[in-house]
Design a protein around this nucleic acid. Structure first.
Length: 233
DNA sequence: GCGACAG
DNA sequence: ATCTTGTCGC
């Protein structure tokens, strides 16, 4: 799908302090209301690192929601790698991950109506996790589904599948802590962009099958870790 | 000042 | 994140 040149993001070439300031500015543009086109194709995104961090790898799996499931029909999938440009700094992970994710989207033929990302949405100190930055950049509805907490506090979640409790940071509800599987570490679900808090949770629940992760993210995760992941399929 | 800290 | 085999559960 057509995407602004990822290079633009690299060219920001920001110091940590500048990146922090930019996050705050961009966060003001995040939309927390449902602004969807009818959802048919949903993209699951997973970004990870190889070679001790030297390489960034982004995997995308596009599912057809209207075709029914589970199992959901896989419409397209892409794995894309490029040299890592920035170190890992808590709170600035999105700058490290997003360039590769944009490279992967640029190589995707399908334009999804919804994006689900492995990482935080607004459940971030400055309300701009990877899912928000990616959603803004692509101008698509995006949801963050993280496997652990970055910031905020919450009550203990019941240990049974389906139980949930709000994630609160500085008096704001920034997400939902969701027990996706009984006796398994909970997920941290938050809106990325163009999605309400309620819809972010609803879509996540809709894609939850028997596993800890919702299907889009789970399949992207799995695709990323395949030995023969040579690109497309 | 002391911890915490997405992937 | 990643390094890794077996093992338990659906």
């Amino acid at each position: 799908m057509p995407v602004l040149p990822p290079e633009t993001l690299h060219e920001w070439n920001l110091s940590p302090a500048e990146a922090v300031a930019l996050q705050s500015r961009l966060a003001s543009r995040v939309v927390l209301e449902d602004r969807f086109a009818p959802v048919r194709r949903v993209a699951g995104v997973d970004i990870g690192f190889e070679d001790d961090g030297a390489t960034t790898r982004a995997a995308i799996v596009v599912l057809d929601w209207q075709a029914g499931g589970p199992p959901f029909e896989v419409v397209e999938q892409v794995v894309y790698r490029e040299p890592t440009r920035m170190p890992y700094i808590p709170g600035l992970l999105s700058f490290r991950e997003t360039p590769a994710a944009l490279g992967a989207f640029a190589r995707l033929e399908t334009r999804p109506e919804l994006v689900m990302v492995d990482g935080q949405g607004i459940a971030h100190p400055r309300r701009l996790g990877v899912a928000s930055l990616l959603g803004l950049w692509l101008d698509l509805p995006a949801i963050g589904v993280a496997k652990s907490r970055l910031c905020g506090r919450h009550d203990e979640v019941g240990d049974t599948r389906g139980e949930q409790t709000p994630l609160v940071h500085k008096g704001e509800v920034i997400g939902t802590v969701l027990r996706s599987r009984t006796r398994v570490k909970p997920l941290y679900v938050s809106p990325g962009h163009r999605v309400s808090q309620a819809a972010a949770l609803e879509w996540t629940l809709r894609f939850l099958h028997r596993t800890k992760l919702p299907e889009p993210t789970r399949l992207a995760d799995r695709l990323a870790s395949r030995r023969d992941a040579s690109g497309r399929r």
